[in-house]
Amino acid sequence: MSYEKGREITISVLKFNPRSAVSKPHFVDYKLEETPGMTLFIALMYIRENLDPDLSFDFVCRAGICGSCGMVVNGKPALGCRTLIANYPEGKLELMPMPAFELIKDLSINTGKWMDDMSVRVESWIHTNEVVDIAKLEEKVDPDIADETFELDRCIECGICVASCGTKLMRPDFVGPVGLNRVARFEIDPHDNRTAEDFYELVGDDDGIFGCMSLLACEDHCPKHLPLQNKIAYLRRKLVALR
């Protein structure tokens, strides 16, 4: 295997351990050689294995499917595993942990806890009193409705929409685009018997659907390209009509 020597790149990471009595937030620069197709996953693993075994970050699938590796790359939240170094011609990347979530250490943040709280808050599950006999034929679903539900079910809870959100900065308890998308998803699902009134109870306030200022950075940065703008507007029209 031979390839041309890659350019030297600099990855600058904000390091901080909030559990340490002595740690203070500071940037550390790492210099390394770019390899073909190098992503931030590959680069950060290289740094940990060769330059700084103390560097904390989160990756799981490294394929843009699990939503673990949201981080702020040159000022914009993105999935680290999908960030190609080649797309940064100046060869410099500055990484910070995403805001809005509890910091664990360095680039590692506690998105799981936030997302579970959100899921419980919007009761992110099917509400029905029907008891299904699973030995019998399944309920029929219009193929278009199934596809539409799937579109919104593609959310991977990476938290990038929350980290991008202006409202979340002003209202700490804002349910976030991810929460509103989840409500929209169950609103479409024919298995869920909740009414618009039920959803109003969950998100019909300024920490919910009426808090969104439509700045739309959520949709700009969503790695799954979810139609957040449309769905939030739709939900707002639907719920505002109730009062």
């Binding site: 299904v132 399944e138 596809d147």
Partner: peptide
């Protein structure tokens, strides 16, 4: 049975 149970739990199987 598993797949039918999951349909009831909201997995949007392609139809």
């Amino acid at each position: 049975k598993a797949i039918r149970e999951l349909a009831g739990w909201g997995v949007p199987w392609t139809r």
